[in-house]
Amino acid sequence: MIEFRDVSKAYDGARVVDGVSLTVEPGTICTIVGASGSGKTTLMRMVNRMTDPTSGAVLIDGKDNREIDGPELRRRIGYVIQNHGLFPHRTVAENIATVPNLLKWERPRVEARVEELLHLFGLAPKDYAARYPHQLSGGQQQRVGVARALAARPAILLMDEPFGALDPIIRARAQADLLSVQKATGTTVVLVTHDMEEAVHLGHRIAVMENGRLRQCASPAEILARPADAYVEEMLGANDRAFKLLSLGTLEDLVEPGAASGAPLRTDTNRRDALADLLWSNRGAAPVADATGRLLGIVRTSALLRCAARPAS
């Protein structure tokens, strides 16, 4: 658990972070969102003591992180930045092994962990372990950066605009990778972004920052349904809040008996993507199948449009 207790940070007399209190529960993703200069990155960097608060405290599992030696603390917390930060003259395997080597793991243990992570991120060790960063695509570099951050099995992973430099298709895949890996490892993730859609898609809870202050911290569904103030509502985008709400639910509860033509949608498809598919193909309904391909019934365009007009269930 990470607790920010009334933390502030001042530079030259100006407060960059101003009296923020929030809790990040273990095994969850907390996205911190706000415009440039809102204090979101400074707040996140307090966790691994890349910067210390001027006042207040950051507690990790109940212990003030200032009581922990800085280098030791940072070896226990994974950190991923936008441009990946890979060492250009080290191979993929050597990059991933950086922290385990600093912790003096035995070589067989390091090699096994590198291989495990390469498999986890869909990078065959025989094909990628000996490559250098310049031989990888942007998306592959991103995966290696996250793998390196997870190599020593940290309980906490900090991510600072990790997907901002990726094109939309690769970015969507990288986000899916993160969700899959986080679910598999149970890592607590604090992710900074300026993109509210990304915050909604990834976060179990979203912390909205403005001018160093915390405007709202809540689940995506609560923020979308009940923004705390005009600033949060503006960040959400007044014109597409309904479609963001749709993205929080799947088709599971909307399946009804019947038959329809066309390619089936899976029950775990989010409602926004399903509605886009139906409108694009000009269909009033689509068949729905489970993960094995077994047909379960249909979902109607009208049902999805009704969901867009009310908070996600």
Rank of each mutant, 00 (worst) to 15 (best):
N83S: 05
N83R: 05
H84Q: 02
G85T: 00
L86M: 00
H89A: 04
H89S: 05
H89C: 03
H89D: 04
R90D: 05
T91K: 08
A93W: 07
A93T: 09
E94W: 11
N95C: 08
N95Q: 09
I96K: 06
I96V: 09
A97H: 05
A97P: 04
A97G: 05
T98C: 02
T98S: 04
T98N: 02
V99Y: 03
N101C: 02
N101E: 09
N101V: 05
N101K: 07
L102Y: 02
L102W: 01
L103N: 05
K104P: 02
K104G: 06
E106D: 12
R107E: 14
P108M: 10
R109S: 13
R109Q: 14
V110M: 13
E111P: 10
E111M: 09
E111K: 13
A112H: 13
A112L: 12
A112E: 15
A112P: 14
E116P: 13
E116S: 14
E116I: 13
L117E: 12
L117T: 14
L118D: 13
L118C: 12
L118Y: 14
L120F: 06
L120K: 12
G122W: 09
G122M: 03
L123K: 03
A124R: 02
K126P: 03
K126V: 05
D127G: 03
Y128M: 10
A129P: 10
A129M: 10
A129G: 10
A130W: 09
A130V: 11
Y132P: 04
Y132A: 07
Y132G: 06
Y132C: 06
P133C: 03
P133Y: 03
P133F: 03
H134N: 01
Q135M: 04
Q135I: 01
L136S: 00
S137I: 07
S137C: 07
G138N: 10
G139R: 11
Q140A: 15
Q140F: 15
Q141E: 15
Q141W: 14
Q141T: 14
Q142T: 14
Q142E: 15
V144L: 15
V146T: 13
V146R: 12
V146I: 15
V146F: 14
A147E: 12
R148K: 12
R148I: 08
A149E: 11
L150I: 09
L150V: 10
A151P: 06
R153N: 08
P154H: 05
P154D: 06
A155S: 04
A155N: 02
L157Q: 04
L158E: 00
L158K: 01
M159D: 04
M159E: 04
M159G: 03
D160F: 02
D160V: 00
F163W: 01
F163S: 02
G164A: 08
L166N: 11
L166C: 11
L166M: 11
D167R: 09
P168H: 10
